[in-house]
Design a protein around this nucleic acid. Structure first.
Lengths: 228, 228
DNA sequence: TTTTTACCTATCCTTATGGACAGGTACCCC
DNA sequence: GGGGTACCTGTCCATAAGGATAGGTAAAAA
């Protein structure tokens, strides 16, 4: 029957039957169902697509051209892909506003996501149903929406004029992962076929980027930031 | 009006209008809504109560005497309270079957929870709507329900006849927290007004309990176990 | 009262870690 | 071709960490 093209969908966006069309991307089926249940309490809001992976998310956005994309950037092994997706969506679908719904408040992810076009950031464990509804509404209108504690981080970072924390390189991430597993520098060197000096070098750089003074702190920060 | 006693509620449990009565306890409003939405797709299943804290959970159970308690044991700062709650519910409401829905697969929490009366354990990020529905049904019938990967851990631990991991003492937890912040043994000693030897002693014991060989691994395990 | 538990301290010794240098290659972009 | 980035390697040296051992106290439980 009618197979609407992307443009048709985009034009039909503000049709009376659904003023707000949302796509939800989260690897967790329960969370997706929860967001859908909460948002659809508001008449005029419809969750038109769900996705559990980056590929499915891209597909759903292309198919539905939603007003709002509610997304957890931790859909896969690689957080970078989530940020890339933000950028991509922001460029290709400028009318789709992005609301991040994260497990933790990671300054790096937050700042990077905002730079790539997201305009809202909520922390799962702290958000109420009401806040979620309001945030989606705000974001749909192009306004920002930050959960509790998030605003302060944004202000701090913007105030300090420091663009953001450095990201770890692939190799650094590998090394940090092994550090977290309790391997010694020697074991890591053996594992990655590099010298102990190189291992130290990567740990040193990763520590600087994550503001850690020793490996225990490094692991803690990396774990909280979802790098592991 | 009719203020049904607990016994009344328990007796009315298999009334035709709702064969399965569920209480959901999770600190996360989205997750609660999601579990409710998924479970209530099954006719005959009703979520009769929601709770975001241990106190509210206890209250909801006392009030509704549900068939199934679906609970994330991480409702507060103290994971021990969740385990205590399991034990308490299991003793006081033997007909209420407990299904754990955890963020991560923690062997310690899993085993301890099973020992205290829980009969199901699912991992949030890996569960599908269908599995959740089936698990609740199984648990309601008094059968066990384990998510992907969980069964293997259960088998392994039961096979090794090792009762379970030790819990960290208060002091050990303090020390590990400071370790995670990147403090050296000396700094920790100064912070806690104890000697460096004592700090090492506690770290040594905590490492043994958490099966960590070095402090980086210790921090990682402790972070994942929610001790920090 | 005896035992257990949590807690605290110490010494000796080996190995690991981290800082400061001082270099190298390969690749991509302007 | 120059500059940037990621990556790799080495040495020297001070300090931190961790294992093995061997004690101690105070309070709660058996």
């Amino acid at each position: 029957m009618d197979t609407p093209t992307r443009t048709d969908v985009a034009r039909g966006r503000r049709a009376p039957q659904a003023r707000t069309r949302v796509v939800v991307a989260d690897r967790n089926a329960i969370t997706r169902a929860g967001i859908r249940a909460i948002l659809e309490r508001s008449p005029g809001t419809a969750v038109v697509g769900e996705a559990a992976t980056y590929d499915l998310a891209t597909q759903a956005i292309e198919e539905h051209g939603p007003d709002v994309l509610v997304i957890d950037l931790d859909l896969g092994d690689d957080t970078t892909r989530g940020l890339a997706l933000c950028e991509d969506v922001h460029e290709r679908f400028p009318d789709t506003h992005i609301l991040i719904i994260a497990s933790t408040l990671s300054e790096m992810v937050l700042i990077e996501a905002l730079r790539r076009g997201a305009i809202g950031y909520l922390v799962k464990d702290q958000v109420t149903a009401d806040e979620l509804t309001k945030s989606v509404r705000a974001v749909q209108e192009g306004e920002t929406a930050f959960g509790r504690g998030v605003g302060a981080v944004v202000a701090k970072t913007l105030g300090s004029s420091k663009p953001s924390d450095d990201k770890l390189t692939e190799r650094e991430t590998n090394v940090v992962q092994l550090v977290a597993q309790g391997l010694s520098n020697q074991q890591i060197a053996h594992e990655l076929f590099i010298s102990v000096s190189t291992v130290k070098f990567h740990i040193h750089n990763a520590s600087r980027k994550l503001h850690a003074l020793r490996r225990a702190e490094l692991v803690h920060h990396a774990t909280l930031a979802g790098l592991i």
